[in-house]
Design a protein around this nucleic acid. Structure first.
Lengths: 141, 141
DNA sequence: TAAAAACCCTGTAGCCACTACAGAGTCAAT
DNA sequence: ATTGACTCTGTAGTGGCTACAGGGTTTTTA
């Protein structure tokens, strides 16, 4: 199949497929006489694997390591374990800061009583006050 | 004061301060005879404001709009309201996907019973299986 | 007083994971 | 014969910085 069809089947954009090839994540495709890439079934599988890892928000470098690992399946999988574990930690810490952020934004939003003139807007006052070092809803002293 | 001191007082890196100036977020500084930037108190305040918005993970473009708004304080603050609201929505949706991600990674991690040969590693099996379209821990059918 | 260290300048390139062109060739249908 | 859809390579842009290179200035130390 050609790149467009692979894109359709995999749900990965054409440009992104070429990008993955350049980056060494997707094996090089054979070429037709006209220079077009020709793909086989295993390209589709590999692409699905990549997409899957990306859905887990893994950095491409880690995906690469997973792929390398899969081609030598007798290796110790402790590395993969640690990779997943580290990634999970990362996700959890991002989760924490986002949760804090949500609280901060909520309390900021609630400062603005009524839409009106900016001078009286609690949001602006709040952020101005914060910039002057006073305590604020977002970062209580 | 000079840029180094402003950096210390504000907690914003020197390079980042220059970057903010280039991007039009921080007003241009006067220069000393030798070309060094000279800053006043209000630079510090403005920088604190920016830092504050960035702590809320606002895009610089939005920060810019906030700053513009603050220089014409009689304007309607409905825009700011909506900006905060939209940002909150954004944070919430990121929160949701991260939460889903955490669950997925956990169940993936639990696939790997014992560190050992990769052939038997549940993690790899899981992701391989997923790449073949079958159901998996991360994306149940 | 001289040398060393610390600071400052501009401009450019790198990071990540794409995305979006420009400018060209190829193919399918009308 | 022409239109439109597809493909190619190569390069530049995104955001929000960060990290140089290669220079000049100021402050501290010996």
């Amino acid at each position: 199949m050609r790149i467009g069809q692979l894109s359709q089947l995999s749900g990965v954009e054409v440009e992104t497929i070429r990008f993955y090839e350049r980056e060494g994540l997707l094996q090089r495709a054979e070429r037709e006489a006209n220079g077009y890439r020709r793909y086989q079934q295993d390209h589709l599988q590999r692409l699905a694997f990549i997409r899957h890892c990306r859905a887990l928000d893994m950095p491409l470098q880690d995906v690469k390591r997973m792929l390398q690992f899969m081609t030598q399946p007798t290796a110790d999988c402790g590395d993969i374990d640690r990779l997943i574990e580290a990634h999970l930690e990362n996700v959890r810490s991002r989760l924490q800061s986002l949760q804090a952020l949500e609280v901060q934004l909520c309390s900021l939003r609630d400062q603005c009583g009524q839409p009106g003139r900016g001078e009286q807007c609690g949001i602006v006052q709040e952020l101005e006050s914060a910039s002057k070092g006073r305590s604020c809803a977002c970062h209580p002293a």
